[in-house]
Each structure stands twice: as structure tokens, then as C-alpha cells.
Amino acid sequence: MFGILNSYFSNDLAIDLGTANTLIYVRGKGIVLDEPSVVAIRQEGGPAGKKTLLAVGLEAKRMLGRAPANITAIRPMKDGVIADFTITEQMLKYFIRKIHESRLFSPNPRIIICVPVGSTQVERRAIRESAIGAGARQVYLIEEPMAAAIGANMPVADATGSMVVDVGGGTTEVGVISLGGIVYAKSERVGGDKFDQAIIDYIRRNYGMQISEPTAELIKKKIGSAFPGSEVLEMEVTGRNLAEGLPRKFTISSNEILEALTEPLNAIVGAVKSALEQTPPELGADIAEKGMVLTGGGALLRNLDRLIVEETGLPVVVAEDPLTCVARGSGRALEEMDRLGNIFASE
């Protein structure tokens, strides 16, 4: 009886619990929340003291790398899966509360939540448990390539091969989908975070400068490129000189960033190629004609599509609004969940 009541008072949710950003889609409303997956925690009175949730999301992200000793900004998701169970649960609880504002009863929604296709049973169980801990009445898991393909409006239910490459913050998911199911999928733990790390390492190695993660992300967004383009971009960056220990400015070009990104980009290309190798020839023919679709935040990296075109010799299309593809796709699955059965992943 309370279940029926709660279902009346709580909206069903689809959550793209990403390494970099968490997006929440509410049934009948669309995407209502898009915040970084960052939690700031304040430690009170020494190491044994009480811990309190200081900020979540955008606010917490601003504290990353700028917090005093008693505040720690944590990214509870790593490589597409939960790295800190308790913090993830608190973060989900906070987000769910946020979209159920001014409700008399505590929300108790049904939740569809995305999982990387390469995640282990333990990791999936952790995601499910954290959603239940955050107040979910029922949890459905959907694999990210499937959600991304639905979100990109690909013909997933048709008897035709559709290939989707979702470059997220923590993982790159490559999936070949036909007849409403995943024919082949591969997950590589390479994504936006690895790009940032690669840039940090490159600059430390070649310039002897230490830069922070947010700076590396900024460099990637402004001048990052995956393929030598027609123009060379430059950017002035401030970091700490490792030899002097003082903040110094220096200029870095897009070609250097391209060099820095070689390793993670090769991993992505390798995943795409191995997926194509494993794809049955009939579906391969469909993909050769229609090409593959790039989604996720990584798709915004300049010329990534060009790189994959040159490496695979197949047409590549960047999806419209690639950042929200997975959230929109799982939202679509949420809207039609009563008629769907087989697209949800088991543990």
C-alpha cells in the first residue's frame, strides 16, 4: 500500500552516474540535473572527528584542489565504477533529494542506472546497493552503450548493425547493437580523466611544471586535439615550476597536446578496432555503410572523429548533444520501461 502511495509521490528516475558528471532524467520532465560527480567533505576536530557533507556537485567541484586540510573534495566514481561506496550513496541521496524538493514524504523512486559494459558483478552490485541506499524502491541497470545508442536515436530495435563509441570520463564503451541487444561490447578504462592525466604527465616531463587536474581539463577542452588539424592552437598555462617551486607561466600548443594524448587515444582506437574485428560480417557491412556514432564528453575532443575515420576507414558521425546521450537514452528507456524487458542488464 505504501509502495503505491510512494510511487504516486516519487518520480521515476534515470541516472547516468558518470565518472565526471551525473545526469538525472525525471520521467515526464527530461534531464533536470547535470552536475559534476564531486563531493566535498569537511572533517571536524581532528582525524577522529565527525565528517559532514559540505557540498555536492558544482559547488564541490570548485573546491577541487583549493580546499584546506580539513576539507576534502572527493570524486567517488573512478573508471566508471564506484571507488567510494559511502560517498557515492550520499551523493546520490543528495541529488535525489534535490530533484524531489518540497516533498512531504521521503522520495522512493524506481531508478534506471547506467553501468559500464565491462564492469564486474561486484561493481554492478555496488552501484545497485548504493542506489537502494539512496532510497530507490527498485533499481534497473542498463549498459552504457545501449543507453548511448538509444539516446543518439539509432535504430537499436531494427535488424541492422549500429555501432556506438561512448567516450566518457572514466571509460570508453564500444558497442555493436542489433535487434534491441548488444551483439558485441568492449569497455576500455580510458576516458576524459586519462586524457587529463596524460596532459599533466606530459607537461611535468617536458616542461618540468606541475599543473592541477582542473587546469589539465581546461587545456584539453581549449586546445586538445586528437588528429593534426588545419590550424595550430596555443594556450598560456600557469603551473608550479618543479625546480624552482614557484608559479610560472608557459605556452603550450595543440600539437604538443596531441602528442601527450597519443597513448590514451591509441587505447580507444584499439578498442574500436577490436570491436570491429569481433563483429559478425553481416553487421560489419551495415556499419561500413552507416558508420559509427561517437557520443560522450570525449566526442567533443577536437578531431577525435577524424582520427577514428583515418584509423578504421569507416565513416564516423558525432552525435548531436553527445554529453547527454546516455542520460537521454536511459530516460527514453525509463519512459518505455513497462514495455521493455530485455534491454536491462542483469547483475
Partner: peptide, 13 residues
């Protein structure tokens, strides 16, 4: 040409 979503991608490319 394939679905409108892919055709739009082709046009962009």
C-alpha cells in the same frame, strides 16, 4: 542514405 540522425552527421562532416 541512412536514418536522418546519421544523414545529418554526414552533412555536418
Amino acid at each position: 542514405l541512412p536514418e536522418p540522425m546519421l544523414t545529418r552527421g554526414f552533412i555536418r562532416n
